[in-house]
């Protein structure tokens, strides 16, 4: 677990994830540093590889700290924010609606059921 190559790999993986989120470089480094710090604290007891610990820590950061996502490009922010905060009921600007059991994208209007009658011909 003290292998520096493994920790380098963990850092690279975290930074790659943050890059995919579109978070700017400086904020990415700050978040990555925090994720790696938390992973390093957990490492001696956990017994998992650094990559695994670092990614788990990163997901926890997003789950508990909405500020971490604030720098994601606007288009993504809403979707991602709701993914990690499914119970937040504040209005969504891109038709993303939260429900108590998870994130629901309002890709469709509310259903107004009708019947389509099938008759024998």
């Amino acid at each position: 677990m003290d292998d520096p190559d493994l920790w380098q790999e963990a850092q690279d993986r975290v930074l790659l994830y943050l890059k995919k989120l579109g978070i700017p470089a400086i904020q990415s480094l700050e978040i990555a540093r925090e994720a790696l710090r938390q992973a390093a604290e957990e490492a001696p007891a956990a017994g998992s590889p650094p990559v695994t610990l670092a990614m788990r820590a990163l997901h926890m950061i997003f789950r508990h700290n909405n500020k971490a996502l604030e720098n994601a490009p606007y288009a993504r922010y809403e979707i991602l924010y709701r993914r990690w905060h499914p119970h937040d009921q504040s209005p969504a600007s891109c038709s993303v609606a939260a429900s108590t059991t998870g994130l629901q994208l309002a890709a469709l209007p509310p259903i107004r059921r009708g019947s389509m009658i099938i008759r024998k011909i």
Binding site: G22, L80, R82, T101, G102, L103
Partner: peptide, 17 residues
Amino acid sequence: VVDPYVNALHLAFRRQR
């Protein structure tokens, strides 16, 4: 599976779990 945005977008389309 991999892209966090695409993953979140797709999950958002699903009905309640």
